[in-house]
């Protein structure tokens, strides 16, 4: 497949807009396309998504493939894989990027294997090898204990990128691009896994994945009441609260709050790890945080090897005093 050219980004749409992860993908894709001296294409799939083509161009795309069809109103993997397969065979890119979201992690591997190639999921770095011009795909493995760089000889080289790992370009209305409409050509009978309902689970306060600051507690918090103390610190910081696995396993907090290998993977600006030892299982979920702040009574705890700032001490004494001072600082 020597004629594969260009970089393609599958752009997710959320609430009628380009999703944040789509702009991140376009930012990453632009860099790769420039390194190859080739074009960047965006793909928009959905119902009524044509209007977003201009947005994709503002964020860096030279071309936008639009597949607008009533059958594509919601993400059905059978439909989206078939459509992406069609678009990829038509455009023949050498790289396809998606986000490491509930859609991308479902779609990317299926598409890759259908196209006779492979995918690397959850990449935190993408680069073009100057010698071979192939895509170097770096991703965390072993729950973040290590990183691996993958390459593939088959085309297209497909990768998903971790949320917030890539940087979007500033939107620029002066950018020009071409819009190409592609017919979905779908039969409703192609959909074998049919979505009946979408359920939003309202969680109190700020969503873990979106929060700039996250306050997490571990086994040492000791029970549900302790998490109320952490919530007090979260309030003035507009932070979300999370937990390592033991508090979830013990039923102190809901499992949706779990940060770690078997929970959520987040990358906030500031991550407070309180009474958390820093097991591999937990670090897999938060090692992408820009700044980790550790509060633990054990000076040998692994978390201090990961943290930028720390206090060695009993969280029951440290956290209330920290909360009082933080309140004073942020209101003042």
């Amino acid at each position: 497949m020597a004629d594969n050219k260009g970089v393609m980004v599958f752009c997710e749409v959320a609430n009628g807009k380009l999703a944040g992860i789509a702009t991140e993908g376009l930012g990453a894709g632009r860099k790769l396309a420039d390194a190859l001296g080739e074009e960047l294409a965006a793909v928009l799939i959905g119902t009524g998504v044509s209007a977003l083509a201009e947005e994709a161009i503002k964020y860096g795309a030279n071309k936008v493939y639009v597949v607008d069809d009533p059958l594509l109103n919601e993400y059905h993997n059978d439909a989206f894989i078939a459509v992406m397969d069609k678009v990829a065979r038509q455009a023949n890119p050498q790289i396809i990027l998606m986000g490491q979201t509930s859609i991308g992690r479902d779609l990317a591997p299926r598409l890759a294997f259908r196209l006779g190639t492979s995918a690397t999921l959850d990449c935190i770095e993408l680069a073009i090898d100057p010698a071979t011009k192939r895509l170097l795909q770096t991703k965390p493995v072993y729950g973040g204990n290590a990183r691996a760089i993958f390459t593939m000889d088959t085309n297209p080289q497909i990768a998903t990128t971790r949320i917030k790992a890539m940087t979007p370009l500033a939107p620029d209305a002066a950018r020009k691009g071409e819009v190409i409409k592609v017919d979905a050509g779908l039969q409703p009978s192609a959909i074998k896994a049919k979505m009946l309902q979408k359920v939003k689970e309202e969680i109190e306060g700020i969503k873990l994945e979106d929060a700039q600051i996250v306050i997490s507690g571990g086994r040492g918090i000791g029970g549900p009441d302790g998490f109320k103390v952490l919530a007090e610190l979260a309030k003035p910081l507009k932070a979300a609260t999370g937990a390592s696995r033991p508090p979830c396993d013990n039923g102190w907090v809901p499992s949706t709050m779990q940060v770690g290998l078997t929970g959520k993977i987040i990358a906030p600006e500031v991550y407070f790890a309180i009474a958390i030892s820093g097991s591999s299982q937990h670090m897999s979920g938060c090692s992408g945080s820009k700044n980790i702040i550790a509060i633990n009574k054990d000076p040998e705890a692994n978390i201090f090897r990961e943290a930028r700032f720390g206090v060695v001490g009993d969280w029951k004494k440290v956290v209330p005093a920290l909360t009082t001072k933080v309140k004073e600082l942020v209101s003042g």
Partner: peptide, 19 residues
């Protein structure tokens, strides 16, 4: 089809400032 060309441990600064 996918080949791992390198496996490494990210370098940790290990410079936690303890207050």
């Amino acid at each position: 089809r996918a080949k791992m060309t390198k496996l490494f441990q990210p370098v940790k600064e290990g410079k936690c400032e303890i207050l």
